[in-house]
Design a protein around this nucleic acid. Structure first.
Length: 373
RNA sequence: GGGAGCGUAGCGAAGUGGCUAAACGCGGCAGACUGUAAAUCUGUUCCUCACGGUUCGGUAGUUCGAAUCUACCCGCUCCCA
């Protein structure tokens, strides 16, 4: 753990907080939503577009980049920042999520995980050590521990066993991690079980990381279970380190997270939904492909300040979607990402004014009973 | 003028006596998506809320039964003159 990664809380409102986190490629101000760029690209978006919509930090994925173009090639290019010409902070996920999402073609042992490569069927082995070494090659600003993201629902016995292994993996990863310019975060697991979440958080803190993530949420569990996973995990994390709620990108979950003192979020939802024609708005999700938008010459949201809403109508976006034109996916990705950024920006303003709960309630009330995306 | 074909749901295209309201593709409509195997996947698409009704260019037949067989008619394509 390096003391270079200074995390400073500058405003508080209950457990909610605003903080700055210093990384090797600049300071992040939290709470922050991080767009996901698995394959060294936030799908369809240029860095100028990411800058314009207010992205402070993006994600890359260790497993996917290891397979293609390989971490060796990226190292040869001078690291991920240089390779993709993105000079702001980058966080790499460890491959732990792939243990969950590619569960059909993988085998877990104490040593690590053997994947059957989805591209050509070849065997790929990832261990906590190799994941960290790969992330060091990639040169991300924040590396994540290699964990097992357990599915839901799953038995107490399984989660207990998995968690114990994930904790051993966290220690192994920490021990081998060397880059002083790269922060390393631990990941709290433990499924829906309070005692396991507590044990996970406490053990990770004991090992000592530059930040802590809550993993294993947003994988199909009911909202009450999510809430429990969140609270049971975050409670034992140190105040003076960043907290990252992994895979969360719906506004109700994000606001719950901020309320509990979460600083960082990421999610593929805004970009994936956008590519699939679903747009996030304060009044719920809209499906741009719906016939009713055929001649709707108004922006997605009148009050939205994004490039898309400032320049294009729903009718045009629908046309682009129907014709499968790339520009449509881009414009809608910009809107959805900006939408979440605006939600978070509003939360920050509210925290400064010490009325976060009010903001949360008002936002969710306007949102009504519609799904949180 | 002579010869050979073809006409099936919005479009393309299977089907050549019952298991066919009719495969499949496209198009249309709707839905899903949460640390990205996702520019993907699912449902639906003759009429009717339903019971049920009406279909395979048209008409008339054969048959217990026809998109499928017969006759004539209409339209279209190709080849030869």
């Amino acid at each position: 753990m390096s003391k270079d990664f200074v995390f400073t809380v500058i405003h508080e409102d209950g457990k909610a907080r605003i903080a700055t986190f210093k990384t090797s490629h600049g300071v992040i101000e939290t709470p922050v939503f991080m767009p996901v760029g698995t394959l060294a690209t936030v799908k369809t978006l240029s860095k100028e577009e990411l800058d314009a919509l207010g992205a402070q930090i993006i994600l890359g994925n260790t497993y996917h980049l290891l397979l293609r173009p390989t971490s060796a090639l990226i190292a040869e290019a001078g690291g991920l920042h240089s390779f993709m010409n993105y000079q702001k902070p980058i966080l790499t996920d460890s491959g732990g999520f792939q243990v969950f999402s590619l569960a059909k073609s993988r085998k877990i042992t104490e040593a690590g995980v053997t994947f059957k490569n989805h591209l050509n069927g070849a065997t790929v082995f990832m261990s906590p050590e190799s994941s960290i070494k790969t992330q060091e090659e990639l040169g991300s600003d924040i590396a994540m521990s290699f964990d097992e993201c357990v599915s839901y629902p799953v038995s107490y016995e399984y989660v207990k066993e998995s968690l114990a292994r994930t904790l051993r993996w966290a220690k192994r990863g920490k021990d081998i991690h060397q880059r002083k310019d790269q922060a390393l975060f631990g990941i709290v697991q433990g499924g829906e079980f309070q005692d396991l979440r507590e044990q996970s958080a406490r053990s990770l803190v004991e090992i000592g990381f530059d930040g802590y993530a809550i993993g294993g949420t947003s994988i199909g569990e009911p909202k009450e279970v999510f809430q429990k996973m969140l609270v049971d995990g975050v409670r034992y994390l140190p105040f003076d380190k960043p907290r990252y709620l992994m895979g969360v990108g719906s506004i109700d979950y994000i606001l719950s997270g901020i309320e509990q003192g979460i600083d960082m979020f990421d999610c593929v939802l805004p970009t994936r939904l956008a590519r699939h024609g679903s747009l996030m708005t304060m009044d719920g999700r809209i499906n741009i492909k719906n016939e009713k938008y055929r001649s709707d010459f108004t922006p997605i949201e009148v009050e939205c300040d994004c490039y898309t809403c400032q320049n294009y109508t729903k009718a045009y976006l629908r046309h682009l979607y129907i014709c499968d034109e790339t520009l449509g996916k881009r414009l809608m990705s910009i809107h959805n990402l900006r939408f979440l950024m605006r939600i978070v920006a509003g939360a920050k303003e509210a925290i400064k004014a010490k009325r976060f709960l009010e903001y949360k309630e008002a936002t969710l009330k306007r949102f009504g009973n519609k799904r949180g995306f």
